[in-house]
Simulated assay, not measured.
Amino acid sequence: MKDFSKELTFKTSRSSGAGGQNVNKVETSVTVLWKIEESEFFNDIQKDLIQIKLKNRINAEGFLFLTVSESRTQLMNKTKAIEKILEIVDKALVIPKKRVATKPSRGQKQKRLDAKKNLSQKKENRKFRY
């Protein structure tokens, strides 16, 4: 996992929800912004991969953003935001393995057919006979 936290910028705002006067007077909610195109930590292929996988989180200016307001303190929210954005980008860089199509084995086929026979036999036995 690459630590690109030096490239992050932060904005603070007032959190919503419970907290009483603390919510009304202290800016504890933290929004972290990262300009993907200007990053020096990733190559062009990785940047493209991040932009494709995280397109819903990227705004029109090309900033990846994330807002955290879980804690009552700005510092805790800032550290959580850094952790989350590093984790999100790290997950976006993972390329999934291609699935190799396989055929069911002979035993699996026989098991399925036996289950079908068993079920049809059970339903046959439920029929009312005169």
Rank of each mutant, 00 (worst) to 15 (best):
V100I: 14
D90R: 08
V94A: 02
D44V: 09
K103N: 14
T73A: 05
L66S: 05
I82P: 02
T102S: 13
Q51C: 13
I45D: 13
E37V: 10
Q74P: 06
P104V: 11
K78R: 14
D48Y: 06
P96L: 08
E40P: 00
A60V: 15
F63E: 15
I82F: 02
V68F: 00
N59L: 08
K91A: 11
I52K: 14
Q51R: 15
D48C: 09
E83R: 10
I82A: 04
R57C: 04
T102C: 10
K35P: 00
L86G: 06
K35A: 10
K97D: 14
F63I: 09
G62A: 03
D90N: 13
I85C: 04
E38R: 07
L64N: 07
I82L: 00
L86N: 11
E37M: 09
V94Y: 10
K103T: 13
A81T: 05
K84D: 11
E83G: 11
K91F: 10
I88F: 10
G62F: 07
I36V: 14
R57H: 09
S105G: 13
S69Q: 14
I85S: 04
T73P: 01
T79V: 11
K78I: 00
N59T: 06
K53L: 01
N59P: 07
D44S: 15
I88G: 00
A60N: 14
S105P: 08
I52F: 11
K98F: 10
W34M: 00
F65R: 13
I52R: 12
Q51V: 05
A101R: 11
F41E: 08
I85L: 10
G62S: 08
Q74S: 10
R57W: 04
K103S: 13
I36D: 07
I82R: 06
L66Q: 07
N43V: 03
T79K: 15
I45W: 05
I85Q: 01
D48A: 11
V32H: 03
L64K: 07
N43P: 05
I95D: 00
L54E: 04
L64W: 04
V100Q: 13
N59W: 04
K91C: 05
I88L: 14
I82S: 05
Q51E: 14
A60Q: 15
K78E: 02
S71E: 12
K84T: 09
K91R: 11
D90Y: 06
R99K: 15
I88P: 01
L64T: 08
L75Q: 13
A81P: 07
A81N: 02
F41W: 09
K80R: 12
K97W: 03
I50T: 04
S71C: 08
Q74W: 03
I88A: 03
M76E: 15
K91W: 01
V68K: 02
D90P: 00
I88T: 10
A92F: 05
E37G: 03
F63N: 15
A101K: 15
A101M: 12
F65W: 12
I95Y: 04
G62Y: 07
F42H: 03
I50S: 03
K53C: 02
V89G: 06
V100T: 14
I95S: 11
N56I: 01
L75H: 12
L75M: 11
W34Y: 05
V94W: 01
E70T: 10
E83V: 03
S71Y: 11
K98G: 01
E37Y: 02
